[in-house]
Design a protein around this nucleic acid. Sequence first.
DNA 1: TTGTAGGCGTTATCAA
DNA 2: TTGATAACGCCTACAA
Lengths: 343, 343
Amino acid sequence: MSRSPPPPAGAPRAHASSTAVARLAGVSQSTVSRVFSAGAAVSADVRERVLKAAAELHYKPNALPAILQTGRSGIVAVVVGGFYNPFFTEFLRCVTSLLRERRIETMLVDTSSDDNLDDIVGELSRYRIDGVISALAIRSTRVARKLEGAGIPIVAVNSKKFGNLRTVSTDNRSAGALAADLLIDGGCRTLAYLAGRESTAQTERQRGFLKRINDRQVAPPQHVVAGFSYEEGYAAALELLSSGSRPDGIFCVNDLVAIGALDAIRIEFGLSVPGDIQVVGFDDIPMAGWRGPDLTTFHQDMDALALGSVTLLAEAAPSRPIVIPPRLVLRGTTRPRDVAVTP
Amino acid sequence: MSRSPPPPAGAPRAHASSTAVARLAGVSQSTVSRVFSAGAAVSADVRERVLKAAAELHYKPNALPAILQTGRSGIVAVVVGGFYNPFFTEFLRCVTSLLRERRIETMLVDTSSDDNLDDIVGELSRYRIDGVISALAIRSTRVARKLEGAGIPIVAVNSKKFGNLRTVSTDNRSAGALAADLLIDGGCRTLAYLAGRESTAQTERQRGFLKRINDRQVAPPQHVVAGFSYEEGYAAALELLSSGSRPDGIFCVNDLVAIGALDAIRIEFGLSVPGDIQVVGFDDIPMAGWRGPDLTTFHQDMDALALGSVTLLAEAAPSRPIVIPPRLVLRGTTRPRDVAVTP
DNA sequence: TTGTAGGCGTTATCAA
DNA sequence: TTGATAACGCCTACAA
C-alpha cells in the first residue's frame, strides 16, 4: 500500500480518516461512518469499540466528502458593509448566533459596496455555500442578475426586491413618517434631514419623512447629504449650522450621523438639545442609549431581521418579503411628550 | 451512464463540473483542471476553448475535492469574544481584510468565553480549516491542551503562552505603567483602577499600573471590578463615587468602561473631567475619539495585531511571541501637559 | 447489524 | 502539451 511521505516534524499531524479508525477498531469503514451519523443502527458493542479507536486517533469526521456527496455544505456566507457601524456588527451577531443554533457555519465577508458582491459570491460558491445573507442592500440590476446566475439562494436586508432575491426589511418609510410626526408634534417647524448616500433604506426613510411633512403642511426640510458615519454627521451639522440656518428639528439617516450631529450642535455651537434643536436618529445602536448622547431613535429589531433572514434562506423557494416594524425609542434628544404617536 | 434524478423545479440548478466542461470543450478533464490551476502549461488555443465552455456552463471550480486532495482548505477560523466591544470588531475587520488579500476565507466564531473554544475548534476542524486566530485569550491549560490535540495551528491575541500556542499581544504591562505616570505627572495623588474580569490583558494592565504607582511611592489605588462594558463601567464609577471616595485619577481596563465611568462622573455626579477627576482608558475604540467622551487612551495597534496574527499563522512552526507597543493618545480627559512621557 | 463497492469532483502522477 | 488513472474520505445503495 503506497503511503504519502511522513509530514515534516512540527507540522500538524494529518487528520485521521474513518478508514484508519476502522482498521484500529477492527470494523469496516462504513461502520465507522454509521457510528458518526445520527440515527444509524449500530450495536452498542461495536459503537463503543469505534468510539474508543476514534478518541485514540483524535478522529473528527471530515465534512468535505460528505458535502461533495450531498451537495449541502452547512456553510452560509454573511455579508456586511463595514464594521464601523454597529448596525452591521449587531446584525452579524444575531445571525451567527442563529446559524450556530442550527449548526451552520458562518463565512464572513466584509465589503464596502455591493458592487462587487457578484464576484465575491462567485468566489465563495467554490466552497458550495448553501446561501448568502447580505446586510448590504443590493442596488444594481446587473449585480442582482449575476447573483441569480450563481444559483445560490440570497437574502438581502433593507434591499429593493429583484427577481429571486429574498428580502427582509425594517419598515423604513413608516419610520420616516413617524419621525416627522414626532418632531412636528414636539413643536418643530423648521426641519432638516441629514441624509445618507444612495441606499434603499436611506431613500425610504427620507421619502416617508418628506411625505408626512408635506401632508401636514409644514415647510419642506433642509437637506444635507452626510453619509453614514459619526464624522460625516458631525461635518454635516457643522455645514448646516454654519450656513446660518437654525432648524429646530433634525432627522438623521442613522444613529452614528445623529450622534455626530449632536456633538457638533452641543459642543461646537453650544446649543441645547432638545431645547434649541431636537434630534432623532435611526437604528438604536448601543451608543444611542449611552447617557452622553441619550438619543431618541428608531429601534431596528435585529433579532427579527436576523431570524427573518435565516428563515427565508431555509425555504425551498423565494417567498414574500418580510417587513419588520420599527419601534420608536424616546430618549433625551426630543422634548418629553404625553401624546401617543400613531403611524 | 447512471444519472441522478433531475432537481425539483425552482431548486438552484446543480453546479457544472470540470468533466462537463471538458466534454463541451472536447478535451480531457485534466486539461480543464490545468486551465484553472495557476501556472500550468496549456496551449493558448486549448485554454481559450476551455474558458469558453466554462463560461457557457457558469463553471466555477469546486474547492472541496481540491481540499480533499491537498489538505489545505484556504479557510481560517477567526474567534471573537462578543460584538459589543469595538476592540473585537476592529480586530475582525483588520484580520478579514488581510486574509482576503491572501485569498483566504474567514469562518466566523463568536463566543462569550474561551472555555468552549476546544469544542468549537473541534467542530470546525471538520471543515479542515487551515488555522485559528482567536481574539479571545486562552486562559485554561485544559483548553490549551485540547486545542493542541486538534493539530491545527492557533494564534491567540493578548493571551498567555501555552505549548504550541502562537501569541500576539499589546504590551499591556508597559501601558499600565505609562498610565500611572501620566496620571501622577498630571498631579493625581488618589488613584483608582476600574478592573475587568479575569483575562491576561486585564491582569497585565493592572500589574503595570500598580507596580509603577508603588515604585513612585504613591498610595495604592482603589480597586473596583467593573467588567468590559459601558454599563459595567458606569455602575462601577457609581459605586466608587457613591462610597464617598473622590479619586482624582482613574485608569480603566478598556474604553467602554472608561466612557461609562465618564458619563457617571459628569452626568450623575456633576463633576468635571479632567478638572476634578482625570480618566484614562484602553484600546482607542472609535467612540473614544468622539467629541463627547474625548477620552485619553492607549491605542492598540490593530493593524499590527492582525498582521502579526496572520503572519504567525502562516509560519510552519510556532515562533516567538509578537509584542506590539501601545501608543498613548492624549485627549481631553487628562490635563494638558508638555512633559514627554517615557516608559 | 455489518461489509462491499461505486461515486462525488478535484489534484497528482505518469505515460504518451 | 495532453490524457488516463489513482487517490482524497466520506455517503449510499445493496448484499451478506
